[in-house]
Design a protein around this nucleic acid. Structure first.
Lengths: 349, 349
DNA sequence: TTGAAAGCGCTAACAC
DNA sequence: GTGTTAGCGCTTTCAA
């Protein structure tokens, strides 16, 4: 363990040349003698020289760090988004700093503050459900740190945004149920506060109207956390009524999984009696019984895109060029499984 | 948008005092006049002064960043570990930089390199399955960056380590199956390369022997990825034999979920004909049908502990005090569900 | 209690 | 091609 790390100075002294010469050599600058360069490289190699990034960051006022704040890592959607972010960031030479808000506004504030102290070059954020005020993000922007919002975005602020087409996803999901001959379709929606579940509700409604079906108010249920427990309870509630739905479209997969459980517990058949459709295509959705049909979001790709947008914006700002904020709407796709299609014949070998 | 960020110099000039005085005031040093301090704070507030962390990091040669490398974020176990890491890191004022190796050795190398460039204060790593050589980590250590290994550790190197008691977890899991009266217990194990599945196998074996049962070689199956697909195939294989097992203990939850599917497809009853037990207690394990009994690992707590160990080590190194490396073995616990206990009577309301 | 001076390691601007 | 000088923003001596 050496007393101190090797500096340019150490190399310069040992070689009897000046510090800038060593710097030029190591950075492959043109204005440096071939001989000198060779000597420098050799000695640097021998001494295991490692550049002191603190000094470089300080000089350039640049960290090559992208901050990422999401509500919960332990969510299939978000861990895939992060995965996409990290993989893409690496390609551009950025590191990723991660923070989770746990759906708390205060925690989100703290995250932004921490990141600000860490001198991030840009922030990618998916807002917590309890965030209404985005002053903390505007503040970041005003300090010249680009902000890109992803999935849970706010319209109270100008910035690059990446969302997926929740409306269309819900529309097609509902249309799929209709195509199966279902006529009394229930919908379990979320708190309508985050943009996303509201769009899903609108897509559902639109498909119902478009196909001339009735929108039964008693079949539209709202729940807060769109969790499995709520899905279970809400569905039991639906099934306690006299007139049963013949399909349920849930705003999230956990809700749908709860619904499946409730329907099975009531002794009804899926999808014959009631078909079930979710939204998000969690990994676990393929292994419930019956496997759940769902709307798949391009999570990984959304993360990838976020890095693309933010690195572009960082560069533009650095070059003092004007930035124009785009909103990217990404397409969803239907993943159809037994909860709507019914059982395929399985042949055990 | 101001032309440049406010510096101590700006405050000093406007107040007609020296830069160090401003610094002292802002840092609550004792040797500063009360009056001066007040004026400084007021002006700093007014100008929205934000300290330039680049300069501070540079001066202190300290980043307050902990690097974390794990094989896959999109794994229930790891996302919980990360969650624990992030939450605890925040308390100590550290930020967390994340990288995933995707179980690739080369990728892991790149991660370490990237982190080294980002001047992390310490590294928490769970090795990729394909990592046999740990020179990259030894190199980090020799540059005075503490390394803490978690879950997938290597014995080829001295460092703090956090693992969970896979042996005991497997032992108790097997004992549970025995207590149900099961006598022909199969085990699906992993590649035995990562330390973990090997320990699980040993725990299984030990329980079988301890209770005087036979260890049937044809009931011990090995598969590489311990995935759901492999679990399914391997189990079908087991069930094709004449003498069927009456329980299967799988080294991972996905394998167990595959096993459940295979047993159901064969028309056998769980747990009456064959009980199934997993290991790790993934979130999805509670929602398969029947819900899977498993061995729960203290994932979140392991992450928390990792931060505790690494911050301690960082401090010791900084104070030039000797570091002694501890290996923390954390306890697992059994989570018993229907795949071994059988169906509880459900009363739909 | 305050100010002057030095320095963290590196790079860019300017001379020669 | 190479060396000299200066400076990024802050903190820490040392003097007064």
């Amino acid at each position: 363990m050496s007393k101190h790390n090797i500096r340019l100075k150490d190399i310069a002294e040992e070689l009897g040349i000046s510090i800038p010469s060593v710097s030029r050599a190591l950075n492959n600058k043109p204005d440096i003698g071939k001989e000198t360069k060779k000597k420098v490289f050799e000695l640097a190699e021998k001494l295991h020289y490692q550049r002191n990034q603190f000094a470089i960051n300080f000089k350039n006022q640049q960290s090559f760090i992208i901050g990422v704040i999401i509500p919960q890592i332990v969510h299939h959607f978000f861990s895939n988004v992060i995965s996409g972010i990290i993989n893409e960031a690496e390609k551009s030479g950025y590191s990723v700093m991660l923070y989770q808000s746990n759906e708390s506004y205060e925690s989100e504030l703290k995250g932004v503050e921490t990141f600000q102290r860490s001198m991030i070059d840009g922030l990618i954020i998916s807002l917590s459900d309890n965030t209404v005020n985005v002053d903390h993000l505007k503040n970041l922007q005003s300090h010249n740190v680009p902000v890109v919002m992803i999935d849970k975005v706010s319209h109270k602020m100008e910035s690059a945004k990446i969302i997926c087409d929740d409306f269309k996803g819900a529309y097609y999901a509902t249309e799929h149920l209709i195509s199966l001959g279902k006529k009394k379709i229930a919908h379990i929606t979320g708190s309508l506060e985050p943009y996303t579940t509201k769009e899903r509700y609108k897509g559902f409604e639109s498909a119902i109207r478009k196909h001339g079906l009735s929108l039964y108010p008693h079949l539209i249920k709202k729940c807060n956390l769109v969790s499995r427990e709520e899905g279970y309870a809400t569905t039991l509630n639906l099934l306690a009524k006299k007139e049963l739905p013949d399909a349920i479209f849930c705003a999230t997969d956990p809700t749908a999984i709860g619904a499946i459980q409730a329907i099975k517990d009531k002794g009804l058949k899926i999808p014959e009696d009631i078909a079930v459709m979710g939204f998000s295509d969690w990994k676990m959705s393929s292994i419930v019984d019956p496997p759940l049909s769902s709307v798949s979001q391009p999570d990984f790709e959304m993360g990838r895109k976020a890095i693309e947008l933010i690195t572009k914006e960082i560069q533009l700002k650095r070059d003092n060029k004007p930035v124009k904020y785009e909103t990217h709407i990404m397409e969803t796709s239907l993943v159809l499984r037994e909860s709507t299609l019914g059982k395929k014949v399985k042949v055990p070998n």
